[in-house]
Simulated assay, not measured.
Amino acid sequence: MSEEPRDVFMLSRDSLSVQEVVNAASSSSCGAVSVFIGTTREDELDGRKVVGLEYEAYELMAQSEFRRLCADIRARWPAVLHICVHHRLGWVKVGEASVVMAISSPHRHDGLEAVQRCIGQLKAAVPIWKKEVYDTQEASWKENAECSWSEQAAQNRPAH
């Protein structure tokens, strides 16, 4: 009896549980659960230190884009069984997890590649935005380099 694939996406204002994400992706028919944990890091920019991030999302569209992302992953890696992503909203201080994802697959290779694709596409296509807050009480919105509209992506596109 084969298990049905499961896709879980949760946006939360509470601390994320790595174990909860791993449990949601685990399966006795898979030999690998590949995990990614993205944490808020203490960066320094122009003499200001990041003390935390503030996340916002367009939640309905985020759910829709996540379903599209899962379909893309399954098309590329048909052996992937479960995909689970939990992402924070609101205030996330330095050192805390902003995103936790886990993907189960029979073998590690597919899962590891799928996790890399998943985080890249999550940052590129899912409408979740972050604002860096500095020790000076200043803040600035940041775009993900993976977004097609980002300045960094434009610099990396080939000229036509």
Rank of each mutant, 00 (worst) to 15 (best):
F66N: 10
E143I: 00
R74S: 05
R74A: 08
Q121S: 09
C30M: 05
D72W: 06
S15R: 13
A32V: 05
R6H: 09
K142C: 15
L69A: 02
A62D: 14
C30A: 09
R13D: 05
N156L: 14
E132G: 05
S27L: 06
Q121H: 07
V92F: 02
S64A: 06
V80M: 03
N144E: 10
V51R: 11
G90T: 07
S27Q: 04
L11Q: 13
T136P: 07
I128K: 01
V126C: 14
S148K: 06
M101Q: 07
I103R: 03
I103E: 03
Q19I: 00
G47A: 08
G111C: 03
D110G: 07
S17Q: 04
F36N: 08
G120A: 04
P5N: 12
A75T: 11
R48C: 06
V18L: 13
V33D: 03
N23W: 00
V33I: 08
E56T: 14
G31V: 11
D110I: 01
A57L: 06
S148C: 01
V18H: 01
S34L: 13
E4C: 05
P5Q: 13
A71W: 03
W77H: 15
A102D: 12
H109G: 01
L16I: 15
Y55F: 14
M61D: 02
G52C: 05
W149Q: 13
W129A: 09
W141G: 05
G111T: 03
S105D: 12
S27W: 08
E3V: 14
C70M: 06
G111Y: 04
A102C: 11
E20I: 02
E44Y: 04
S64T: 13
A79W: 02
L89D: 08
A153N: 02
D43F: 05
I128Q: 06
S105L: 05
Y134Q: 04
M61H: 01
S150G: 07
V21H: 13
V21I: 14
